[in-house]
Design a protein around this nucleic acid. Structure first.
Lengths: 221, 221
DNA sequence: AAATTCCGCGTTGTATACAATCTTGGTCTT
DNA sequence: AAGACCAAGATTGTATACAACGCGGAATTT
């Protein structure tokens, strides 16, 4: 991702992606000694990396007991989605007010790109992975609210992606999602904040119920 | 505040309150050496404390250059308020749905307490300080959303309180605020989520415009 | 046999020492 | 005189060493 200027940042970055990808299971203990022999360096930068992970809510640390990969309960994950739903709807409303015409045009171009990918039936998995994220990132950036951007992209999304890996890869409805994306952009283009917010809310709500049923199904086993 | 189980936590706690109270000015540099001679201990726990401050967005750290108390621009502070406005309105809506009858009764009792304090004209300053916060905290807790609670109380409120200290102490309209609080509780009591959210949104919007005019005034000097 | 206490080991928290980087002051050049 | 370059000092990043705390198993007691 971003080039690390320090060893601690490098270790943090690697651990973060490892956690998000599920290579480190939720609840798994992060022994400082083990990390030293795995990533090199001494305990000082490793501890710093762990603290950075804690800051992003990817690990939980208890004094004198060590750090563990965060393990969210059903309720906690639902809470996160609930907040994300609200914040991203807000971002979409603000984007409809504040995005420049050029940015809106770029966003339209992005969706046309996605449409071609799906039509060719080749970039289907691509669309599910980075394509979907690209769209949402642009909306968030379009809100022109730095703190909102930080909260959504910096904190919530890592957690969400982490649990996406566990429960199959995102939605299996790329065509439906694309249509919803297109309607959202239409609302932004016509500078209708309320409609844009409403459409985004419904869009995310769909994936939320998707997740809930999936988790409920998983809980039975 | 919370009893510190480790030296790093203790230093963090003291530094945090010092920053919030304005004893450490925004932009001021936090030299590790200086903090060691001020708070004792070695650099290890001091560094850990600084990292915890960074995690809460109270300081900004750049590699090889040290840490400074966060100094927010006008736009950044407005961004934070914008997010708070949305999240706390959301909390109020959820509280109207999820607070127990007992909790609502407690909240009513709290407001009656506040009313007496104001009527006696003695606890006026009290109401502005902790009273106002107590009310908002209870609403947030009433949302029963742990992540929402964490974001509002853990991250945003420290920053907001920090800048309240700089610009005179909160609103000079305790009576008006109390009335608004009472109406909010009424909406919660009658289990009207939409109305509760609307009233909270207006309530915070008032303090937001309050802050904006104050900052605009300050910018002239 | 079950519960409890205590001791030993491993882990984390803290202190000190060394290396790498940035900053500051001065000198030199243009 | 203004700006760039360079070296010394200070500061941060990293490594190693020591201290404090928690966990787990064995021995003891009821």
């Amino acid at each position: 991702m971003s080039e690390a200027q320090t060893l601690a940042e490098k270790v943090f970055s690697e651990l973060a992606t490892a956690i998000v990808r599920g290579e480190l299971a939720p609840g798994e203990k992060l022994s400082e000694q083990a990390l030293v022999s795995r990533y090199g360096g001494s305990r000082a930068p490793i501890r710093e990396a762990i603290q950075k992970l804690e800051a992003r809510n990817l690990v939980v640390r208890v004094p004198h007991a060590g750090a563990r990969v965060v393990s969210l309960s059903f309720e906690e994950l639902r809470d996160i989605y609930e907040v994300r739903l609200e914040l991203e709807s807000m971002a979409c409303r603000l984007a409809a007010e504040r995005m420049s015409d050029a940015e809106v045009a770029d966003l339209e171009a992005l969706l046309q790109e996605h449409a071609r990918s799906i039509e060719a039936d080749q970039g289907l998995s691509y669309y599910q992975k980075s394509g979907n994220l690209d769209f949402h990132y642009r909306i968030i950036e379009g809100s022109k609210n730095s703190r909102l951007h930080q909260m959504l992209c910096g904190d919530l999304y890592h957690i969400i992606r982490m649990y996406r890996y566990r429960t199959s890869t995102s939605t299996e409805r790329p065509l439906q999602a694309l249509k919803e994306h297109q309607r959202i952009v239409e609302a932004i283009k016509s500078r209708d904040p309320q409609l844009a917010e409403l459409l985004m809310r419904r869009h995310i709500q769909a994936s939320l119920t998707n997740l809930e049923t999936r988790l409920a199904h998983e809980a039975r086993h």
